[in-house]
C-alpha cells in the first residue's frame, strides 16, 4: 500500500491517536498485512511510538506483519467440527492449495489458518473464507468453494 493511501486512511480518522487500532485494521483489510512503511507512517502521523504500535500489531491475531493472501481461509478444528470431520476438510484444502496452516501461497491468493470454534457448531465441519461461512462441508464441496475464488 502506498503511503498516500495510508495517509488517506489516517485522515479519515482525523489523525486521532485513539483510532490507532481502527486505522491498523483498515490497512490490514486493504493490504492484507501491515508493512513496515505503513506502520512507520502511522507512527509519525499519529505521534504514537513505534514500540507501542509493534506491541499492538503483535498482540492481536487480526494483524499480520507478513503479507497474507487475498483470501483468508479459516478451517474450524474445534471439538464439534473435529468430530464432524474437520480433518477431511483440512486435508482437502491442504491438498488443493499446497498450504499448511499458517502459510500463504506465492501468488498471495490464499492464507490458511485453523481456528477453534467459530460459534456455529451445528453447521460443522465449518470453513470460513474471508467473511463468508460454509457449513456441512464434504471434501468435494470444499474444493468447489475454493475454486470459486479468484
Amino acid at each position: 500500500m502506498d503511503s498516500e493511501r495510508v495517509d488517506q486512511i489516517i485522515e479519515e480518522y482525523q489523525c486521532e491517536a485513539s483510532a490507532l487500532i481502527q486505522i491498523l485494521l483498515r490497512i490490514q483489510e486493504e493490504a492484507h498485512w501491515l508493512s513496515r512503511n505503513a506502520l512507520e507512517r502511522v507512527s509519525e502521523r499519529l505521534g504514537v511510538s513505534m514500540t507501542r504500535i509493534m506491541h499492538i500489531a503483535t498482540f492481536y491475531k487480526a494483524f499480520s506483519l507478513v503479507p497474507k493472501g487475498r483470501h483468508e481461509v479459516h478451517i474450524c478444528v474445534g471439538t464439534a467440527c473435529h468430530v464432524r470431520g474437520a480433518e477431511r476438510v483440512l486435508d482437502s484444502v491442504e491438498e488443493a492449495t499446497g498450504l499448511k496452516p499458517g502459510e500463504t501461497d506465492l501468488d498471495l491468493k490464499f492464507s490458511l489458518e485453523t481456528v477453534n470454534c467459530v460459534g456455529c457448531c451445528a453447521l460443522g465441519p465449518v470453513m470460513q473464507v474471508d467473511k463468508k461461512t460454509y457449513g456441512k462441508l464434504s471434501a468435494g464441496e470444499t474444493i468447489n468453494v475454493l475454486q470459486s475464488y479468484e
Binding site: T51, R52, M54
Partner: peptide
C-alpha cells in the same frame, strides 16, 4: 519498557506478542 517510555521518552524497547 516503562522507564524508556515514561522517563526517557525514547520508546526504544517495547513488548511484543502476548
Amino acid at each position: 519498557v516503562r522507564y524508556c517510555a515514561e522517563v526517557k521518552k525514547a520508546d526504544a524497547v517495547g513488548f511484543l506478542d502476548r
